[in-house]
Design a protein around this nucleic acid. Sequence first.
DNA 1: CCAATCGAGTTAACGGCGTATACTTACCAT
DNA 2: ATGGTAAGTATACGCCGTTAACTCGATTGG
Lengths: 238, 238
Amino acid sequence: MTVPNRRERLRKATVTEIKAHARRLLVAGGPQAISLRAIARDMGMTAPAIYRYFPGLDALVAELTGDLYDEMRELVTQARDAAGEEPLPRLAAMTRAFRSWSVTHPAEFTLLFGAPLPGVAGFVEQCTHADHPGARFGALFLQILTELWHHSPWPVPPTQTLRERLGDTLAPLRQSQGPLPVEVAYTFLSGWVRLYGLVAQEVFGHLRWAVTDPEALFSIEVDRFLKQLTADAPPTHH
Amino acid sequence: MTVPNRRERLRKATVTEIKAHARRLLVAGGPQAISLRAIARDMGMTAPAIYRYFPGLDALVAELTGDLYDEMRELVTQARDAAGEEPLPRLAAMTRAFRSWSVTHPAEFTLLFGAPLPGVAGFVEQCTHADHPGARFGALFLQILTELWHHSPWPVPPTQTLRERLGDTLAPLRQSQGPLPVEVAYTFLSGWVRLYGLVAQEVFGHLRWAVTDPEALFSIEVDRFLKQLTADAPPTHH
DNA sequence: CCAATCGAGTTAACGGCGTATACTTACCAT
DNA sequence: ATGGTAAGTATACGCCGTTAACTCGATTGG
């Protein structure tokens, strides 16, 4: 019975090698540069052989995308855990790790957070499932914000205002990882959107016409956002 | 001497038709769907003929990108001018127009603001020039913020803090349209990044796992940002 | 130990793509 | 009328994803 194990082992090794070459191509030339023929060529194979391991290029890219989410999540987790016990410095470390990874891995960032490619479109759709790599990444930030909220709430638009204006809009998010206070869900989205906007603009080069050192801007923005989370004043009024 | 005019006229008409077909393909299938062969097929021509009008696919896409910037800028301008005289409602109308156009034109938005395609990479580089369509679009927001600032400054991190932490980082932006106060430059970037992040996440479908009605979230975020611009309190302290 | 099976990989082909080169054709100015 | 020039075509090269038919070696059951 050791024999099928061996076959499985070989197969898994091949899958790993395919994805490794796919990533090399991704890094070298962006998402568009990933091609079955190039991968096969680099592996000393012919392109149709890859169909023994993946249904097609799209599936390969989708799986690579999942791997990258996991890799980045791991990195952010490590940065968080290396930042001590206080929730706020932990959150700060997470944002810095996210930007750092994104800036040093622009091609990977593009694949994860850029416009959905034809084949990856379906991948985005499945983010609703809690075990989706993307959802698990989001849950990291959601989790620490929840922790912080229960530790010491920060001022947000009054709950009533949020409820009136948002309604059930945040329902998918609030139900994704156990029930969430609407204040936490709102703050998560507001903060994530700012973080994403800043990093994406930098990675995509859309800030080069305006800014020479995006990290300085990033640093200020993170500080201002975190300060909003510490000021334990009563909620601002409508 | 009317004859060369006629030739020029025909040539211009052909260029327009090529770009129109390119846009149709863009809308139908995203930036990747733009292909010289498909355009030529739709026009009853052969692909190499297009090289009489554009140096290659990349140049065609770059020019289309410029046109789209102009189209969107025009639309935002109209929305602004239809919003009365007060600067703040004008700015609000501009952000709403920007989101509205983006959501209804996801393919075009992707081309303008998504990850730079191989060929458009060079296009992004040239945004430094003030007459670049992208720069002229940014100038719209820059302009109204400047106007608002001179009318009634809003609280930002103290000028000294901004100077210390940003240094000359914003120099390209501050010099792009005549000299700008660092407070205006910073507020512009901070606000633009939030606006971009929100709209891009919505257009790219990255919010679908969390939010059912992105417009409600957008509305709240814009209101909060604008409120920051009206509170004429003294600058918050470091 | 042998035969049946199955999985990995190959070759060949189809249609799509950008693009370069060489050729034709129609129009324009002299 | 003629020479030049711009528009457009035909052909070809090398990429691409994907499919179908086939080979071959390893695994498995008898």
